[in-house]
């Protein structure tokens, strides 16, 4: 072996080694979901029921899976679990496939309200998996007056200054400001953005932090006494400390929906529809509620849940008709530029 051939040999050896590790696998359905958002034995059960293999990938955030499928032109995945504004964007970008209801008998398990979601009336390109509200989660034992308005968060009282957190995800952060001012959660008009920006910059000085992953943990430790929270996550706090309570402010909330989207690049339309049908069975709907502590649009699943659970976590009992009163976050389209600049201004403010 000569001097010059060493790198070439290393290169070749490494490539063949890695090729070996990633040898092509049999045709299967590829799903990407948040880790822990489906039953652990989903793949085994689905295989037993239909004979189809599931390959389950995990993503950390909507933004990451969205970036990944955009960069790959939609290739690589059959089904994605994403929040509704991202489902809408996937559809707008031409990456989502239409959903054939005739192949999904279990669609009948959904509440009628789950067919009327504004981002996709009639569930043409997405199927709702979970839904809920965004509100205030607080330590009733550490706060003098129970919060009831978004302004209790944005203009925190003296006793909780520095013990408040807001969600760091741009859309929900801004939603708090929009709702406090009676605006739409999808506002992109400059004067309104400026007004909310000024308010949120002011609020920033009274914040402990922006947090969209460990805020419930901060409530449990007592680091924070009031946090902006998704209802399901507040339940994780309540599970540890019953003094933690959740309230939807009087100005309202947004209605968030996590949904299932079929990718246009999928080559297994029949298998994909079988998968969605399987996910929508009552047993899986019940699993979501009991293990994730989110509300499910799956009526059959919700009705199978132990009533004691709904008492311990009151926000789980919100009726679908009430959920539908709240506005959903929508893809902002052209307005996104102005919106994201405003968010950067808030984030960079001292």
């Amino acid at each position: 072996m000569t001097f010059k051939t060493i790198p070439a040999a290393v290169f070749a050896a490494a490539l063949s080694f890695t090729a070996m590790l990633t040898a092509a696998q049999a045709e299967t359905l590829v799903i990407s979901n948040w880790d822990g958002y489906m039953p652990k034995d989903m793949a085994e059960k689905f295989k037993a029921a239909t004979g189809i293999d599931l390959e389950i990938a995990v993503h950390a955030t909507n933004e990451e899976i969205m970036g990944k499928v955009t960069a790959s032109g939609g290739e690589g995945f059959d089904v994605l679990f994403v929040s509704s504004p991202f489902a809408e964007a996937l559809n707008n970008l031409g990456l989502a496939a239409p959903i054939d209801h005739s192949k999904i008998p279990n669609m009948a398990n959904l509440y009628p309200e789950a067919m009327q979601l504004k981002h996709d009336p009639g569930n043409t390109f997405s199927v709702p998996y979970t839904w809920g509200t965004t509100g205030l989660c607080y330590r009733s034992d550490l706060i003098k007056t129970a919060p009831s308005s978004w302004n209790d968060l944005l203009k925190p009282a003296e006793d909780i200054k520095g013990k408040v957190t807001m969600l760091s995800t741009d859309r929900w952060l801004m939603a708090a400001g929009f709702l406090a001012n009676g605006m739409s959660v999808n506002t992109t008009e400059q004067a309104s953005l400026d007004k909310v920006r000024d308010q949120l910059v002011e609020t920033k000085r009274a914040l402990l932090s922006y947090d969209d992953t460990t805020f419930y943990s901060k409530l449990v430790s007592g680091e924070a006494s009031l946090v902006q929270a998704w209802d399901g996550w507040c339940n994780y706090g309540i599970a540890e400390k019953p003094e933690i309570k959740y309230v939807i402010p009087k100005e309202g909330s947004d209605l968030w929906v996590d949904s299932i989207v079929v990718m246009k690049a999928s080559k297994n339309p029949d298998a994909v529809h079988k998968f969605i049908d399987f996910v929508l069975n009552a047993e899986n709907g019940k699993w979501v509620v009991e293990n994730i502590m989110y509300k499910s649009p799956n009526k059959a699943g919700m009705e199978a849940v132990d009533k004691a659970m709904l008492e311990k976590y009151p926000n789980m009992a919100i009726a679908p008709a009430d959920l539908l009163k709240y506005e959903q976050l929508r893809d902002l389209g052209e307005g996104m530029k102005a919106f994201s600049k405003t968010v950067s201004e808030i984030m960079a403010a001292k």
């Binding site: 990633t22 389950i56 993503h59 690589g76």
Partner: peptide, 9 residues
């Protein structure tokens, strides 16, 4: 994350 294939493998 971006350069990985889909799935656990």
């Amino acid at each position: 994350y971006f350069t990985a294939g889909a799935g656990q493998s």
